[in-house]
């Protein structure tokens, strides 16, 4: 079967009933979708399938043959962060980060679909996504900021893939 993952086309060998989560993580070694529950309950495995947010753990490979899949790696890089990624950093919306991969993907789908900064609307859009660390307030602020298109002064300074340091304007006030 064929998948285009983050703009790269791949031929995959996993059996047709394999979950897309296992195809991405175990066959393609794309580890950003997280196996938080493997049963649809947490949202950590969310990816975009043809632009729509989907729980990859609920999605059988055969049902997405030929589809374009985007994971959080495909949304932006440390050197070129997307608007939603910047907002998550600026508003401290990622704490342990385990929910963030799915959360950023779902928030991106929401913003791309023209979602507003209305808290209730964001809550509804992200209702299937669990975060045990942040208490959600920071996440709601981040998504609202991205939806509004707030100017955020984030300047990625270092570029090592892991643990990139960023400076936030005003940090030394």
């Amino acid at each position: 079967m064929e998948l285009t993952v983050n703009s790269v086309s791949c031929t995959v060998q996993s059996p047709p009933l394999t979950s897309l989560l296992n195809v991405l993580r175990e066959e393609l070694d794309i580890t950003s979708p997280k196996a938080g529950c493997e049963s649809g309950g947490c949202g950590a495995c969310t990816v975009l399938v043809d632009g729509q947010p989907r729980r990859s753990c609920l999605t059988a490979l055969c049902t997405v043959d030929g589809a374009a899949v985007v994971t959080v790696e495909g949304l932006g890089t440390p050197e070129d962060l997307s608007r939603v990624q910047q907002a998550f950093i600026h508003h401290y919306a990622a704490q342990c980060g385990f929910c963030s991969d799915g959360m950023v993907v779902a928030a991106t789908a929401y913003v791309n679909a023209g979602g507003s900064d209305d808290t209730d609307a964001i809550r509804e859009a992200l209702a299937g996504h669990f975060c045990r660390c942040t208490g959600y307030v920071k996440i709601l602020e981040a998504v609202a900021a991205a939806a509004r298109g707030d100017e955020l002064d984030i300047d990625s300074t270092a570029s090592s893939a892991n643990n990139t340091y960023v400076t936030i304007a005003g940090a030394e006030s």
Partner: peptide, 20 residues
């Protein structure tokens, strides 16, 4: 002060390596 998280960028770009 608003200090940057050292792991913030890794967390939002899928680059952080968890045990799994």
């Amino acid at each position: 002060a608003r200090l940057p998280r050292y792991d913030g960028v890794g967390h939002v770009t899928g680059r952080t390596t968890y045990v799994d």
